[in-house]
Amino acid sequence: MKTILFCLLATFLWFPIESFGQNDLLDQLLTEDDTAPQNVTGTFKGTRIINGHAVETREKGVLDFIISHRFGRINGGAYQFFGLDQSSVRLGLEYGVLDRLNVGIGRSSFQKVFDGYIKYRLLTQKAPGGAMPVSVVWFSNIAINSLKIPGVERDFSDRLASTSQLLIARKFNENLSLQISPTYVRRNSPPLASELQNTFALGFGGRHKITPRTSINMEYFHRFDTPSNNIYHNSLSLGVDIETGGHVFQLHLTNSQAMTETMFIPETTGNFFGGDIHFGFNVSRTFQVRRH
């Protein structure tokens, strides 16, 4: 009898100790998992800040269909319906070949430009702990200006232009994200004889969330090699993003009518502070066309 009582007592004493040890170990593992650095997502709502690309990339097998519009200048007055009588459109497709690698193509009615590009994610911001404080994405595109100018013959190479960018962004908290974009644009045949073939610029972009599904955005590209007699201006844009499930609507005001980097960075003719402002929007719709 004493032996039975001893065994029962030992069993009851061992059970809570063992259970406590298992729970303590599980709690420790969960705590370690919670504090392990995780990839930061949602730095921006879409793959564009406004005109320029953001560090966001689509996952493998995801197709993004982007419709972009830029209307005429608001200071055109009531006769031009404040710019709405004129419209330029770009249709684009972007696809996630890999989680880190995206490719895209597009066609703009403005200057009848065809463009293609690649984006490759080099680094992804991680938190907590700041193991990797920023996300870094490489972007390269090539554009072909197919516009026919009466009396002007241009070789195919003269119609080519390309852009290379390093997109560097940090999501500081749930509300604020900032990005800088060192940029190089090469145009084989600039539209003005006084223009340089090589353009260096630095882009600045930011997003501040105002509700769970809306944010305000800003974007600016500063050129470092603008000749004194240049008619062009730095690109400046302000906008609002609205997320509605599978769609992202981006409404903005910008002094740039072109929608490809090879044009809006070196060839923006509007003066934002002089009233040369275009209303525009981007609509993005994503489709899962291939499972992992």
Rank of each mutant, 00 (worst) to 15 (best):
G92D: 09
F139S: 04
L29N: 10
G52V: 01
S189H: 14
L202Y: 01
I105S: 03
V248N: 06
Y79S: 15
D225G: 10
Q28R: 13
T199Y: 03
N282Q: 10
D85I: 01
G116F: 12
E59W: 02
Q250W: 03
Q125L: 05
Q197V: 10
S135G: 09
R186V: 01
L93R: 07
I180C: 00
I4R: 13
R121Y: 01
D33Y: 12
G280A: 07
L253T: 00
G61F: 03
L13E: 10
F12Y: 10
A161D: 05
G106M: 00
V40Q: 07
V137A: 00
N217L: 15
H53T: 05
Q165G: 02
L123F: 11
R107S: 09
G72F: 06
I118N: 03
V136W: 14
T199A: 09
M218L: 15
T268I: 00
A127K: 09
I50F: 03
A78C: 09
E18P: 01
F287A: 03
S189E: 12
K60I: 00
E219D: 07
I216M: 11
A193V: 14
A127H: 06
L238G: 05
L123T: 05
N229M: 12
N282V: 08
S284N: 11
G72P: 06
T260R: 02
A258W: 03
E267V: 10
Y117N: 14
Q111I: 04
K2H: 13
M132R: 10
I265P: 01
G274D: 08
L13C: 11
V137Y: 03
E267A: 14
V134A: 11
Q250V: 02
R213Q: 11
E219P: 02
F114H: 15
N75L: 01
P128M: 02
G42C: 08
